[in-house]
Design a protein around this nucleic acid. Structure first.
Lengths: 151, 151
DNA sequence: TCATGTGAGTTCCATTTTGGAACCTAGATA
DNA sequence: TATCTAGGTTCCAAAATGGAACTCACATGA
């Protein structure tokens, strides 16, 4: 009976486990958040997040290797790179927004939210809700049933 | 200019950061997943996840202290406890399901998904989608605009 | 009575990760 | 020539994690 290791997670069948193998490390999701919100340069991310430089360096490499960030030169001599979110990363935005709404309810704080998700056209605040695309019904823990397909 | 520490995250204004302060540790979300899927006893979680016992012990305490798990005795002499997800934890299920759908698209694998989220009444598979409750429109990275409210 | 088993942890030590600070490199600028 | 800038890397100490054994309270069986 093998012991599970953190580094085995990418090969798990469970999608939650695979997500955590990429984003479940300290700082990783916060770095992705910053790149999604427009902060793309090493020093800028490091200054905002105030994490150590080599953890940042490590996380950027891992996010790039998992296809969530792309390293693009923004100037020659000396060549310097920016980290751009890929489509896979951008597709995580709705998940992040659902997460934000959850935390606002269940991990409240006095401090103001530093970011707001607005409708791009109307500039009105949005209120994320997870629905079932098949029926249009809201998904809640009450409306769903978890089926264990193995074991 | 203070350096940010992992232990400062619970006090951040950013909801993503607060979420990660609770669930962004190694194994924590996978433990919560198991309790949500009905595995509630120390040894059962440990056997399924195959993580070390004192990491599990630590995570259960942290999840309890953040109000995501409740420790309930299921027998006397000797008294033994189960870890039950609270409403806050159950409310995370839709977020987890959105995460699952994201990983199925962007972190594909050959292995079958060990869990499926079915409609509790119809027992049909569900297809999670994040919409704006105000307009009913799907939320994607294209449809939203992130406004920075501070700094 | 004694040995064995069970569930839920705790303790101890080795290995990995992370934190903190300084250093390096290629050019730009003064 | 000296200093600055952006994007790292290197080094060492501190903290977290992995692995295994141990504890505790009771139950069970011989």
């Amino acid at each position: 009976m093998r012991r599970m290791k953190w580094t085995d997670l990418p090969n798990e069948g469970c999608s939650v486990a695979r997500t955590m193998s990429v984003l479940g490390d300290r700082w990783t999701l916060l770095i992705l958040r910053d790149t999604l919100f427009g902060i793309r340069r090493f020093d800028d991310i490091q200054k905002r997040l105030k994490i150590t430089r080599h953890v940042l360096s490590d996380r950027l490499k891992r996010l790039e290797s998992h296809g969530l960030l792309e390293r693009k030169p923004y100037q020659e001599r000396p060549v310097r790179y920016e980290y751009h979110p890929t489509q896979a990363a951008r597709d995580f935005v709705p998940v992040m927004q659902a997460m934000t709404a959850w935390a606002q309810t269940h991990l409240p704080t006095e401090k103001p939210e530093p970011y707001r998700f607005l409708d791009r056209e109307t500039r009105q605040p949005t209120d994320p809700k997870v629905i079932d695309a098949n029926t249009g019904a809201e998904i809640t823990s009450k409306s769903i049933w978890v089926e264990t397909t193995r074991r």
